[in-house]
């Protein structure tokens, strides 16, 4: 075998080993999935766990089909999903806007500092009752819950990243006579895109928390309402269904943010 063929051969072997590893990873992931659901089903049928509390995949699936057919699942899902998306976008946008204002005025950021610390340490869901009274038990107050839970932490994280942009980029712009707005647009904001995206990823999870808690409190529609209703009438199949649907859609949202990340952050890699 010539050296060249040898290199080709070794490279092919290397790729094969990579593929093999990937297959094993997928295999074990599938095993965990199947073991979990079949174990759940089996344990429930054999009464190892209380089927009244833990339900069973077959029951959840049955309920899923019924609720799809009568359309009620879609209605609840639609509510929760739109509340979460709005809350999430609003929270991230307002948080970034606040961060920009703090960056713009160093004086203001010094003044606001202790208040930000207090607001950040406060459990935001505790504001729920006040929001509902103030904004009414409706879509608006639940969106506000989804947003408020992520605003302050977004502000703090994004503001920190604004301040940490390499000052030499700012120097380059200053030598061209850039004003503060141009510095923000050309250097500060684009340099912080990776941080903003990673707060987006955190905020997806946070907004779900805010919205579900909001629906617990308002108790009229949505997946959070499904959970609290199922709990009150002791229908845990309904609770499980709601949880699984939330898990699926929270994952989908997270994946969409990752897709956005790949689109937005272009630097030739």
């Amino acid at each position: 075998m010539s050296p060249q063929e040898n290199v080709k051969f070794l490279h092919r072997k290397y790729i094969q080993s990579l593929n093999r590893e990937k297959k094993w990873v997928r295999f074990y992931q599938a095993v965990i999935f199947i073991v979990f659901f079949s174990g759940w089903e089996l344990a429930s049928q054999k009464q190892w766990i209380d089927p009244l509390i833990f339900s069973a995949p077959s029951k959840v699936w049955g309920l899923f089909l019924t609720k799809i057919q009568d359309g009620t699942l879609m209605v609840d899902l639609g509510y929760t999903l739109s509340e979460t998306v709005f809350g999430f976008i609003l929270g991230t946008f307002l948080g970034t806007l606040l961060a920009a204002i703090l960056w713009w005025s160093p004086m203001l950021s010094k003044i606001a500092d202790p208040y930000l610390v207090v607001l950040n340490s406060m459990p935001k869901v505790a504001l729920g009752p006040i929001l509902i009274v103030a904004l009414g038990p409706s879509f608006t107050s639940i969106v506000a819950m989804g947003a408020i839970i992520s605003i302050i932490i977004t502000t703090i994280v994004v503001y920190t990243s604004f301040k940490e942009v390499d000052p030499n980029y700012i120097k380059v712009l200053q030598t061209f006579g850039a004003n503060r707005f141009q510095i923000f647009r050309e250097a500060i904001l684009p340099a912080s895109f990776p941080t903003i995206i990673s707060t987006l990823k955190v905020n997806v999870g946070l907004s779900w928390v805010g919205v579900i808690v909001g629906e617990f409190l308002v108790s009229s529609k949505g997946l959070g309402y499904m959970i609290i209703y199922g709990f009150q009438v002791f229908n845990f199949t309904l609770v499980m269904l709601s949880l699984l649907v939330i898990a699926v859609f929270a994952t989908v949202m997270y994946q969409l943010v990752e897709l956005l990340e790949r689109k937005l952050i272009k630097n030739g890699s």
Binding site: Y169, K171, T175, N267
Partner: peptide
């Protein structure tokens, strides 16, 4: 003004 490193904007 040209700096020690290029400081080209990576994005």
């Amino acid at each position: 003004y040209m700096l020690q490193q290029d400081y080209l904007f990576p994005w």
